[in-house]
Write a protein that binds this DNA or RNA. Structure first.
Length: 281
DNA sequence: AAACAGGCCTAAA
DNA sequence: TTTAGGCCTGTT
């Protein structure tokens, strides 16, 4: 990969899977939005940014030092996805699914933000998840001025930890409010140490996360994959249940994908949700 | 209008 | 250990 400063943007020449729409629309994150030209704007890691593709190059707002310190890792650019994509092609179905999802990358999101987002995601649809997360940022985050607009950072766990569930009423997140407060307090107090879990093992992380009220198997696996960046986590939701049932049956195990089950999961999920597995009639 | 949406918790077999 | 019902809210 090559990059260089180009005005107030960094120009990227990426020689690996990298599809902005798939990365942002595959359901792993909730704060990036495209305009009518496919230009994405969002806030992550406390910074606002804007990025788009033009011809064969990508452009991201900011300096090369921003890119090096934040965005390189955020977009997981140290990992070779085209190689991984080959290793998860264990059968014809996965060949098709991974081809369809080529360009997806697992973002290295802020751990607390991802934890909170996936607590909110339970029994919910994407538009509403995005709305709740956005309202949470607008109400409790810090303002960031960017290109003539005011954006808001995702609030720190310490800020949310000081609130009561009633204070989250403007979010309209219903029964998830106490789950959010509990998680914020656990993170803030150090009782739930996401950094430590990220350095530890998958089983430990799963066990610790599931101790939290409001975090079960599905959310815990999402957190392990998207917040702790353990690519062997394998969240199973209703879409994944359908995909597994249709293509593998009852004796399925994620171990068939080796250490990259989480990335295989993203291809399966994205494929299933796009309806691309259905035969057109 | 009733059912459902990218689960989780609790109670009851 | 597996299963049903309830849960906030918004949308269809």
């Amino acid at each position: 990969m090559k990059y260089r400063q180009a005005g107030n943007e960094v120009e990227l020449l990426i020689d690996d899977d990298f599809d902005l729409e798939k990365i942002f629309e595959c359901g792993q994150c909730f704060r990036w939005n495209a305009d009518e030209n496919g230009v994405y704007t969002g806030v992550a890691k406390g910074k606002a940014a804007r990025l788009y593709k033009k011809e064969d190059k990508f452009y991201i707002s900011g300096s090369t030092s921003d890119f090096e310190s934040v965005w390189h890792d955020y977009f997981d650019l140290g990992r070779n996805y085209s190689e991984i994509r080959q290793t998860v092609c264990v059968d014809d179905y996965m060949k098709e699914a991974s081809k369809f999802g080529a360009g997806i990358r697992i973002l290295q999101q802020d751990r607390w933000e991802a934890l909170c987002s996936f607590i909110i995601s339970q029994c919910n649809n994407i538009p509403r998840i995005k709305k709740i997360v956005e309202t949470m940022a607008a109400n409790f985050g810090e303002p960031v001025e960017f290109m003539g607009h005011t954006y808001y950072t995702f609030p720190e766990a310490s800020k949310i930890a000081a609130l009561e569930p009633e204070d989250l009423a403007p979010l309209r997140c219903g029964y998830r409010a106490p789950y959010i407060i509990d998680a914020a307090r656990a993170v803030d107090s150090g009782a739930l140490d996401l950094e430590k879990l990220a350095r530890g093992s998958f089983p430990d992380a799963l066990k610790e996360l599931k101790r939290q009220n409001g975090i079960g198997d599905k959310v815990a696996n999402c957190v392990i994959l998207f917040a702790l960046q353990m690519v062997d986590a394998f969240p199973i939701d209703v879409w994944m249940k359908k995909a597994i049932k249709e293509h593998y049956g009852d004796d399925f195990t994620p171990e068939i994908f080796g250490g990259y089950a989480g990335i295989a999961q993203q291809y399966m999920f994205y494929f299933q949700r796009s309806g691309g597995n259905k035969k057109s009639s």
